[in-house]
């Protein structure tokens, strides 16, 4: 085992810590930094529930070590809504369209769609749907997720 000092920005907040080299980023975010919205569904990089944004890109935090995120800027699902509680458009679209049931896979889906829209990008329906290939949902049959994607594309004028 090796120990490493790391620091990273999560949702605009600076976090520091001493971690084992083998500690998964998902475990660091959940247990050390307190972002329990990062859900661990498979630890194998398949289900996508643990997806967070690292330096602008959607990343499976169960496949990344905490040390690898040293110096990075991260966003988790807790950091998406505005300070006044206004939901991010992706969150709002999923809510409007009953895009979730148990909500366990939801944070990862939200983060993948939000990453696609970072820096003002406006992906079309096909691009957003394609990105869902990396997410498993056992509850919804993806119906509300598809409707949310269509709503986002329609709002953006990119159907």
């Amino acid at each position: 085992m090796s120990e490493h000092r790391i620091s990273m920005t999560v949702n605009g907040q600076q976090h520091r810590g001493l971690v084992d080299g083998r500690l998964m980023l998902s475990d660091w975010l959940r247990e050390a930094a307190g972002y329990t919205g990062v859900h661990v569904g498979c630890e194998q990089g398949v289900c996508g529930a643990c997806t967070v944004i690292v330096d602008g890109r959607a990343v499976r935090s169960c496949l990344m070590l905490a040390v690898q995120a040293d110096g990075c800027s991260l966003t988790t699902v807790e950091g998406l809504a505005a300070a006044d509680g206004t939901l991010h458009p992706v969150q709002q679209a999923l809510k409007d369209n009953h895009g979730l049931q148990c909500g366990f896979c939801t944070p990862g889906i939200v983060m993948t769609l939000a990453a696609l829209r970072a820096d003002g990008a406006r992906p079309d329906e096909a691009a957003m749907t394609e990105a869902m290939s990396g997410h498993l949902c056992r509850c919804t049959g993806y119906q509300g997720i598809r409707r949310a994607i269509r709503q986002l594309a329609a709002e953006d004028g990119t159907p």
């Binding site: 329990t36 939901l87 809510k95 979730l100 909500g103």
Partner: peptide, 17 residues
């Protein structure tokens, strides 16, 4: 709209882990 969704969409749910 579901009352549950606000917390689940923002990572504020409370699951066993």
């Amino acid at each position: 709209p579901r009352k549950e969704d606000g917390r689940l969409l923002t990572g504020r749910g409370s699951f066993v882990d």
